[in-house]
Computed example of a mutant assay.
Amino acid sequence: MRAVWYETTGAADAVLRCNVLDDPLPGPGEVRVRIRASGVNPSDVKARSGARGPIPFARVIPHSDGAGEIDIVGAGVDAARLGSRVWLWNAAWKRANGTCAEYVCVPSEQAVPLPPNTSFEAGACLGIPASTACHAVFADGDVSGQTVLVTGGAGAVGHYAIQLARWGGAHVVVTVSGDEKAQIATAAGAHAVVNYRSADTATAILDATGGQRIDRIVEVEFGGNLATSAAVLAPGGVIAAYGSMADPTPQLPFYPLMFSHTTLRMMLVYALTANERANVVTRLSSALEADALQHLIAARFALDETAKAHQAVEAGTLIGNAVIGTD
């Protein structure tokens, strides 16, 4: 099979190789998937660069997200799965071989049926961006009738979070950093959009809700936004945070948050429990089947352009997801 891999961490164009490896075969309980699209996420480029520590295996085929068709099943897996379209989660999480190849073998439960109305490119965005958004929105139950704030609403996760919260019956307020991103957030279903670079963000959020405080925040930058969050969150509100890059060690205003009975939910999509994963899969499957999700593909690359894909994600200028086609 054609595949991309690295044997040491470093710059994308220095360490990523595209060549031929032996086709893998599934073990018991596994399926082999003919990958049609592989999703590139920030965590993938951080692992390859060495930002997440030393290389964990002698050779790593990157990327946890992907989509394709099951072409071989291992012992104990229902043969009826052969030929089915699937999307993958955690393909490269604590594993040497991810989706940046023509084939990958994964445990059967990590290959989720992909509805016929959803493209392989879209399927390659579901394992991390859409699943993170889904857990952030619904980890504590339904959001119908709630007011949900999505920060960074034009990002890969935020874009899905807007749609899922709106689909779930919430009133959705979004923060973005510019007019183009505001248009994307509005098209995704945001009821109100605040440009945090041109306004007193907390005041603008409350103005947008008519003074209604926020029940749940889907948070891309926990530390950097904490003062605003504390100012707008309703008593008993939840901050569901999946990032804090600008301020990774924030000082916590414990007593104001405590007296507001605030819940802080820190999330790592790779580490979802079996029940949490099942809930995410169920919600996403329902949303996909209902045609409730738009998929924001910002850039497409060929397999031998994987280094360029990593560089594009590292640059941080893409609005949406980067996807690699393996055909």
Score class of each variant (00 low, 15 high):
4 V>L: 09
5 W>E: 05
6 Y>A: 08
9 T>D: 02
9 T>Q: 08
9 T>C: 10
15 V>Q: 11
16 L>I: 13
17 R>G: 10
26 P>E: 10
28 P>G: 14
32 R>P: 11
35 I>T: 14
35 I>K: 09
37 A>G: 12
37 A>S: 15
38 S>K: 04
45 V>T: 15
46 K>Y: 02
46 K>C: 02
47 A>I: 02
51 A>F: 00
51 A>E: 07
57 F>I: 04
67 A>V: 12
68 G>E: 07
76 G>R: 09
78 D>C: 07
78 D>F: 08
80 A>H: 11
84 S>R: 15
85 R>T: 03
88 L>I: 09
88 L>A: 01
88 L>R: 01
89 W>K: 01
91 A>N: 00
93 W>V: 00
98 G>R: 00
102 E>R: 14
105 C>V: 08
105 C>T: 10
106 V>S: 02
108 S>I: 04
108 S>W: 07
109 E>D: 13
111 A>Y: 08
115 P>T: 13
118 T>G: 05
121 E>S: 11
125 C>N: 04
127 G>Q: 08
129 P>M: 09
147 T>D: 12
151 T>C: 07
152 G>D: 08
152 G>V: 03
155 G>Q: 04
156 A>P: 04
159 H>Q: 12
160 Y>R: 05
162 I>H: 06
168 G>Y: 04
173 V>F: 02
177 S>I: 06
178 G>N: 15
181 K>H: 11
184 I>F: 14
186 T>S: 15
186 T>E: 15
189 G>Y: 06
189 G>V: 05
191 H>L: 01
194 V>Y: 03
195 N>R: 13
212 Q>C: 02
213 R>S: 10
213 R>Q: 12
213 R>F: 01
215 D>K: 07
229 S>L: 10
240 A>K: 03
240 A>N: 08
240 A>M: 10
242 Y>N: 06
242 Y>I: 03
242 Y>S: 10
245 M>V: 15
245 M>A: 15
247 D>W: 06
251 Q>T: 15
252 L>V: 14
255 Y>L: 12
263 T>N: 08
264 L>H: 11
265 R>A: 13
265 R>S: 13
268 L>P: 01
269 V>S: 11
270 Y>C: 07
273 T>S: 15
274 A>L: 14
275 N>P: 01
276 E>D: 15
277 R>A: 06
278 A>R: 13
281 V>L: 13
289 E>P: 01
292 A>W: 00
297 I>K: 05
299 A>N: 08
300 R>M: 06
302 A>I: 03
303 L>M: 12
305 E>C: 03
313 V>Y: 02
314 E>P: 04
317 T>A: 14
318 L>Q: 09
319 I>V: 13
320 G>R: 04
